[in-house]
Structure formats: structure tokens, C-alpha cells
Write a protein that binds this DNA or RNA. Structure first.
Length: 864
DNA sequence: GCAAGGTC
């Protein structure tokens, strides 16, 4: 009988590899799949077995609302609190679910090697679901491996005492997912809908709310408010100076400073009257500055931000690359404690020949390195350490700087502590007491490899108790208290960590989020400065319901789901209870939104006051105002109507042409970038397509008929089937797209780099370059039905005989034109969703529903 | 278009 098959699943490919290597002693066969599968023979629970080790890539599923709730305008956000939710594959392209199901086929044991944290426990059950294993099936058993680090020793130990996955912990994660989704989405949709479009200079597409991002913003705004409400106060300090052995020494006052000038002046007078200082005491203490514990992700991010100037996302990208290249160990870890089995000698050995630290490392190896400080062990990965030696030439500049820090930090952790002697000399004069401090380093220790942490030497002259010294001058220093600086990113990371906002992996995402939403800006020195929008939002929450932006909100959710994790409360009861509370907060927020709006009104300009006149409204024939802040739009002050425009590009009036359907002036929109296409549009048609079904055919169709069209959807002229308008698809369409079901359309303002672009995908076709004019005609090619185009060549570069410049023909069938066109791909144009049966063709009466059918071989672009 | 959590 064949030995039983055992499927083992890890959270990421790198761990699957480590586990397989450890258990098989590197005697395995690896093959590709959605994720790699490592196979080998071995012993399982005392019997011979065939092992397959593979992995997921984080969560298999993610949670969302069913399609019915996706239409923002058709769903009242309050209904989301009771809405059903569904799990869909988090990364459908990766086909992880199918992969697991296939690999599980014929296996009689499933061993779950997911990370040993709550999220990992949740992924265990996602894996169980995909593999089709059942909880209480005697023939197909599910096991959970509990490992405290990804080292050979711990892996083998976990193998020998397999347990069961913890359903309660997994349910706690389900609860968190549902609560985060419902609360975040409900508030986000509501406040976006309320404020968006109401103020002209309010620059934001989505005004998001979230139990992590909002308190994160709260920290930044809190500091901002501290700064703006700060009232500086003057203070005074006495600073006597003495001359000893030719050096001038300034003494510190025991009273430090006083906030009353008259009193300070009185003390100065007393000191000046006495003039003689007496040494009253001298003390010497041996002090020590401890070496750092191992480096974890959060501390790496803090250092990267404060010392290297890298944002968390950039730092993680650099670290990730260094990890993949084998220069450093796995960079995502919470642990600052090294596992007992950590190979310090090996790690030091790897750096022994490094040109930068080689000598220092050899010193540590010969004199004996120190055991690192204990630190905390989160049971995940060891601290971040160098894995192999690199020099400056092997890495890019930024990667090198990060690598350098990882090395210095590691060497610091195994170096001696820094030791120094601290001398304090105390003086009295005129009844007042002063002192000075001397520092003398006796052992540099780790500070010689981390010089920025060094203790600076301060030498003092020799004093003896009872010495009498004349003061040379008594300065009355006048200073002023200063507000704190803006919150630095590294301070914010500390605050988030302390308050349990986000995880080591998600902290950078939250910070990035509040930047992208235009709530804060990162300024020089990676200081976080809140924007008017960020400040107004937080002030709004503060006056309606401060809980909404306080860090405790995350704590509250955590504390509730902890009950589920510990099995002390039922999952759905807890979810219901928490959602009920948030729903009440939501209702109250909605009821009080006027209070927040008052702050917005004070900060931003109402729509009617902003923007510049751009084009004429077809209804009242007056100019409408163009509002450039996102979402960019036109506003007709007379009709009080808003017309959304395509986003992320430039918009201009199009030769004062008007739409034959509604009399609105046409605009021309150019997408950003050198390859960006341009197309005409009518503001009215774009927002309310006049032909049934157009809005659902082009790209995004989620907005529905009553929704605010225009944010990436709508009907530009290149989709319009108007039979006679010069700008419609019928007039400007040339031929079928070689790549999709779309139509190639002439870019009307592409001269002199004339081109066609597809109205559905990103296909681009270059036409004869440098021509004076290229235009579509009403003629069709008798052979392939493409539109005949007319080219007026430049007279200096014309390919025509006798200097003729005018030529008409079909770009597919005319030999000359065919030889002058070239297919190119631009940046993605619009979503390639939906099939639009083209209205290309005579008179445009072909309408919808008629497919393209087999392509005429002559239409093929293969020869290009 | 929306949250937060994995991971790449």
C-alpha cells in the first residue's frame, strides 16, 4: 500500500521552503504551481509518509458586501450595518483556492503551518475550507503546527506535538473583519456623499473613515492643535561663569529657570554681591548606556524615517529587496529577542571580511561577543539581521544605507554596553546653588559601531571640596518656551504601536492612506503636517462624537473580539453588539452633521464661489464654472447643476463647437502623460448619456442610472452613435481594434503625431507623422468597410510623387497608408470591461447586439 | 470609489 500523503500549508512561500528544508534535510523535490510545492518522503506520526509542502500568500479570502450593496447612491449606508457579507478570493488571479484543492486531493493529513498569530489561525480555516477537509473526519485529519520560530529546531519540535487549530481565535478575526468593513464603509460613504461636491476647493475624491486611519490622523491633528494653541512664556535663568586653568565654564542653576523676571533679577543681585563660589560637594558615578535589543520591523521603520529619511513604504520595499537578495533576514517581525538557537557566530562570520566592519567583527569574534539584551519574543521571526556581507558598490544607494543600519544595529546588539563616569560638582554662592556635570567614557562598547548614540565627553577641571572660586560673570539668560514641532513620522509610529493601531505590517499602509486621502502632508524631516481637510475632519468628530477619532476606538473593538478569541463570548453576539453601538454612533453623527458642516463652511468655499468660467451651458446659455479640485467638474450657477468630468487629465474648450443634441459646448479632455489620448465630450451627454444603455457599456457600470456619473464613466463623443455629428464614433471611427472589440478612433488633436486610439482598450495606432492634416471622410473602403481617411502630407516630406500632398485611402488596404502606420500600446486607457458591439459602419444603424463576427483577414494587423 | 488584515 502506498504511504499516506500529508499536505502541509504555510502562510507564505518562504516559510514553506524553510519547513520543507528542515523536515526533509533539504532532500526534496520542488515544483512550480500557484505557489511552489516541495515534495519528499519521511516519517509522520511514526509511520512512513509522502509529504507535500506548499503555501498560501497571506489571506485567501477577503470580505465585502454583495453586489446589491455596491451602488453608493442606491444604498443607505445605515443599511450596511445589517447587510450580509461575503468572502471572495482575495487575489483571484493567484488561484490559491484551486491550488489547495488540487494539492489536497488524495491526502489523508493536513498540517497547518500558518503564522502563529490570530490572523494565521483565521487563515488555517480558510485553508481547511479550500482543501475540503472536514473537522471531524477520522480518515482525513487536520493538524495545527505551533512553532515559536522558523528554525529547524522549532519546526521539528512543532512536528512532534501537533495540536488542533483554534476556532475561537479564527472567529475573532472574522468578527474584526466584519466590524471594520461595516463601520468603515458606512461612515466613508456617508461623509463622502455629504461633503463631496459641496465645496469647490475641497480637494478629495473620497473622504474616508476607518478605525485605524482616523485615530492615526487624530494623532497628527492633536499635535497640530497643540502647536497652534501654544502660548509662549518668557523665562529667565542665572548662568554664572568661572575661569579655571584658562578655560571658561558655565554652571547650571538648581532652580533651572524662573518665569518671573523680578525674582530672577533679585537672585542675580545676590550672586553678584557674593562674587565667590564655594565647591560644596563632588560626586562620581559609574553609569552605563545599554546596547539595543534585536531589531524588529517597527523599530526599523522608525529609524528609516527619522535617520535615513525613508517613508515606511519605501523602507519596507528596500528591506524586502535586501531580503530577497539574501542580504538580510526576513524583515517582517515583531520580535526583538533572538531565539536561543540563534547562530551569532555564523552571522558575525558572514561579516568578518566586510571592508566596513570586518575589523570590528574580528574583534568581537576574538574577544568574545556579548549575549544580546533579552527583548520581547512575539514567536514569529527572529530580529532583522544581516545574512551576508555587502559593500557599497553592490547595492543601490538607499538599499546600502538601510543595509548598513541593519549591520550596525546587529553588531550593536552583541557589543558591550557603553560605560562612562559621570561627575557632578556642586557650588553655592549668595545662598543659591549651581552645578556642572562632567562625562568621561570608559568603554565605548556598541557606540563605536553606532556612533550617533555615543556619549559625548565633557571634561571638567580638577576641583576640591571647599575650593573658593571667583565668578567671572553672572549672565541672566532670557528665553521663551517653544511649542513642540509637528509630529514626526517616527513619533507617530511609536504612538500607533503603543495604542495598538494597526500591526507592524499595516502601520505603513495607514500612514500612506492618510497622505493619499489628502489629510496630511509629509514635509521636510518626515514631519506630518495635517491639511485643512484633515484638521476640519478631526475637529468635526471632536465636536460631534470624540470617540470616533480617539485611539480607544480600536482598543474597544480589540477588547470585544478578545472575548471571542478566548471563547468567552459568542462570535455573532459580539458582532451584533458592537455593530449596534456603532450604528447608534452613526445615526447620531448623521443627525449632528450640521455641526461638522459649519466647520467645513468656515474652511472651504461654497461651490458657487469657486472655479473659472469655461464653457457654455446648453440650457441657459451662460458660462459654467470649471472646478479643478477633485473630483473635477463643471458647475452651472444659473441651473444649479453639477456636471462631472473625466478625472486626471486636462480639460479645454473645444473650438466653441456645440453638441447637436443639447447645445452644450464641447470640451476636449487630454489624459496625462506623453502618450495620453485626447477626446471630445459634451458635459451633458457625458453625465446623462442620451442613448439607452451607453452608460452600462463603457467600463464601470456600478454607479447605476441615478448615480453621479462622470468619475471615470459616462459617454464621451467617441462612444456616441450620433449619425451626423462630426465628433461621434460614426464620424471619427476608422476600423476595428486589432486587440479587442472596440473601434479605432481618430485622435482629433494629435497633430503632428497623428494617431488612432481604441475606444475600449489601450491600443494605439500611429498614423503618418508630420502630416498637415488627417481627417476621416464619409467614404468606406469597398474591401473592408473601414473609413477612408484623407491625409494632407507636409510638402517637404510627402511620400507622393511630384510633390503632391493630398492622398485618401484605407489604412488597411491602401498600400501607401498601410506602410506608414504602426501599432503601439499606450498606458491603460480605461477599464477593458464590457463588450461594446460597435456602431461602426454605414449610417450607424447596426446598433447594439450585433457582434463583430469573424474578422475579415484583411482587417488583421498581423502584417504591421 | 469605501475598512483592515495578510503578503508580493
Amino acid at each position: 500500500m502506498a504511504p499516506p500523503k500529508v499536505l502541509m500549508v504555510a502562510e507564505k512561500p518562504s516559510i514553506a521552503l524553510s519547513i520543507a528544508s528542515s523536515i526533509s534535510g533539504c532532500q526534496m523535490h520542488s515544483r512550480k504551481g500557484s505557489t511552489d510545492v516541495h515534495e519528499f518522503e519521511g516519517m509522520f506520526i511514526g509511520l512512513p509518509a509522502y509529504f507535500k509542502v506548499t503555501s498560501v500568500i497571506g489571506h485567501v479570502f477577503s470580505v465585502d458586501f454583495p453586489a446589491k450593496y455596491q451602488d453608493w447612491s442606491a444604498t443607505d449606508p445605515i443599511d450596511l450595518f445589517q447587510a450580509p457579507i461575503q468572502k471572495t478570493e482575495a487575489n483571484p488571479k493567484a488561484h490559491i483556492c484551486r491550488h489547495l484543492s488540487q494539492e489536497a486531493h488524495g491526502c489523508s493529513h493536513l498540517v497547518l503551518w500558518l503564522d502563529c498569530d490570530r490572523e494565521g489561525e483565521n487563515i488555517c480555516f480558510e485553508v481547511i475550507q479550500c482543501t475540503g477537509f472536514q473537522a471531524n473526519d477520522a480518515r482525513r485529519k487536520v493538524h495545527r503546527a505551533r512553532f515559536s520560530s522558523v528554525t529547524g529546531k522549532d519546526i521539528l519540535k512543532a512536528m512532534s506535538c501537533l495540536v488542533e487549530p483554534n476556532k475561537c481565535e479564527a472567529l475573532a478575526v472574522d468578527a474584526r473583519q466584519e466590524i471594520d468593513l461595516k463601520v468603515g464603509v458606512a461612515f466613508t460613504r456617508y461623509q463622502t456623499g455629504y461633503f463631496q461636491g459641496k465645496y469647490g476647493d475641497l480637494d478629495s475624491r473620497v473622504i474616508s473613515y476607518g478605525p485605524c486611519q482616523t485615530p492615526t490622523l487624530g494623532f497628527c491633528v492633536q499635535r497640530y492643535l497643540q502647536i497652534t494653541t501654544f502660548k509662549p512664556e518668557k523665562f529667565w535663568a542665572l548662568r554664572p561663569h568661572i575661569m579655571v586653568d584658562g578655560y571658561e565654564l558655565q554652571l547650571e542653576w538648581e532652580r533651572h529657570r524662573l518665569f518671573d523676571m523680578d525674582v530672577a533679577l533679585m537672585f542675580q543681585k545676590l550672586v553678584l554681591q557674593d562674587r565667590i563660589l564655594e565647591v560644596t560637594d563632588m560626586s562620581e558615578k559609574q553609569e552605563s548606556k545599554g546596547r539595543p535589543p534585536g531589531l524588529n520591523t517597527v523599530n526599523l521603520l522608525k529609524i528609516a524615517s527619522s535617520a535615513l529619511g525613508f517613508g515606511p513604504q519605501m523602507a519596507m520595499q528596500l528591506a524586502e529587496r535586501l531580503y530577497i537578495q539574501g542580504f538580510i533576514s526576513y524583515p517582517r517581525t515583531e520580535s526583538t529577542a533572538y531565539p536561543s538557537s540563534f547562530d551569532f557566530k555564523g552571522t558575525l562570520g558572514a561579516l568578518a571580511n566586510n571592508p566596513m566592519w570586518g575589523d570590528y567583527v574580528q574583534g568581537l569574534l576574538s574577544d568574545g561577543y556579548h549575549k544580546p539584551q533579552s527583548g520581547t519574543d512575539a514567536g514569529d521571526h527572529p530580529p532583522i539581521t544581516p545574512m551576508r556581507s555587502a559593500n557599497e558598490d553592490m547595492l543601490e544607494r538607499d538599499a546600502w544605507r538601510l543595509y548598513q543600519y541593519v549591520c550596525q544595529h546587529f553588531l550593536g546588539t552583541v557589543s558591550p554596553n557603553c560605560k562612562y563616569t559621570r561627575t557632578k560638582v556642586e557650588f553655592s554662592i549668595g545662598g543659591e546653588f549651581f552645578h556642572c556635570i562632567g562625562l568621561h567614557v570608559t568603554v565605548k562598547g556598541f557606540t563605536s559601531i553606532m556612533p550617533w548614540l555615543a556619549v559625548s565627553e565633557k571634561n571638567l577641571p580638577q576641583f576640591a571640596k571647599g575650593d573658593k572660586i571667583e565668578v567671572s560673570k553672572v549672565e541672566l539668560f532670557e528665553g521663551q518656551t517653544a511649542p513642540p514641532d509637528y509630529l514626526s513620522e517616527s513619533e507617530l509610529i511609536s504612538l500607533m504601536e503603543k495604542n495598538g493601531i494597526g500591526t507592524d505590517a499595516s502601520i505603513s499602509a495607514h500612514i500612506n492612506n492618510i497622505c493619499e486621502r489628502n489629510y496630511v502632508q509629509v514635509q521636510a524631516g518626515r514631519k506630518l503636517v495635517p491639511t485643512a481637510l484633515g484638521i476640519t475632519l478631526i475637529r468635526g468628530y471632536q465636536c460631534i462624537d470624540p470617540d470616533l477619532c480617539l485611539p480607544d476606538i480600536r482598543g474597544f473593538i480589540e477588547q470585544q473580539i478578545n472575548l471571542v478569541a478566548k471563547g468567552e463570548a459568542d462570535h455573532s453576539c459580539v458582532v451584533q453588539h458592537v455593530l449596534e453601538q456603532f450604528k447608534q454612533k452613526y445615526s447620531y453623527f448623521v443627525k449632528q452633521i450640521d455641526n461638522m458642516d459649519a466647520l467645513f463652511e468656515a474652511q472651504f468655499s461654497p461651490l458657487a464661489d469657486s472655479g473659472r468660467a469655461l464653457s457654455k451651458c446648453g440650457k441657459c446659455l451662460r458660462y459654467m464654472k470649471y472646478i479643478s479640485s477633485q473630483p473635477s467638474r463643471l458647475y452651472c450657477g444659473t441651473c444649479e447643476e453639477v456636471y462631472y468630468l473625466p478625472q486626471k487629465g486636462t480639460i479645454k474648450l473645444y473650438k466653441e463647437l456645440t453638441c447637436p443634441l443639447d447645445n452644450f459646448e464641447l470640451l476636449i479632455f487630454s489624459m496625462a502623460g506623453p502618450e495620453g489620448k485626447s477626446f471630445p465630450l459634451c458635459p451633458f451627454c457625458y453625465n446623462s448619456p442620451p442613448f439607452e444603455g451607453i452608460d452600462t457599456l463603457f467600463g464601470v457600470s456600478k454607479t447605476g442610472s441615478s448615480g453621479k456619473l462622470g468619475k471615470g464613466t459616462g459617454m464621451p463623443c467617441f462612444l456616441c452613435p450620433h449619425p451626423t455629428c462630426r465628433h461621434s464614433l460614426i464620424a471619427q471611427g476608422v476600423c476595428a481594434c486589432p486587440e479587442c472589440n472596440g473601434t479605432l478612433v481618430l485622435d482629433p488633436i494629435s497633430a503632428p503625431k497623428w494617431r488612432l486610439y481604441c475606444n475600449m482598450c489601450n491600443c494605439l495606432v500611429l498614423l503618418p507623422q508630420g502630416a498637415h492634416r488627417i481627417a476621416t471622410t464619409r467614404e468606406r473602403c469597398p474591401e473592408c468597410d473601414s473609413t477612408i481617411i484623407e491625409v494632407d502630407f507636409n510638402k517637404n516630406t510627402t511620400p507622393l510623387e511630384d510633390g503632391a500632398t493630398l492622398h485618401s485611402g484605407c489604412i488597411l488596404c491602401d498600400d501607401l497608408l498601410h506602410s506608414l502606420v504602426e501599432v503601439k500600446h499606450g498606458k491603460s486607457f480605461f477599464k477593458r470591461a464590457g463588450r461594446w458591439a460597435r456602431a461602426r459602419g454605414r449610417g450607424g444603424h447596426r446598433g447594439r447586439g450585433r457582434g463583430l463576427g469573424k474578422m475579415d483577414p484583411k482587417m488583421s494587423f498581423r502584417d504591421f
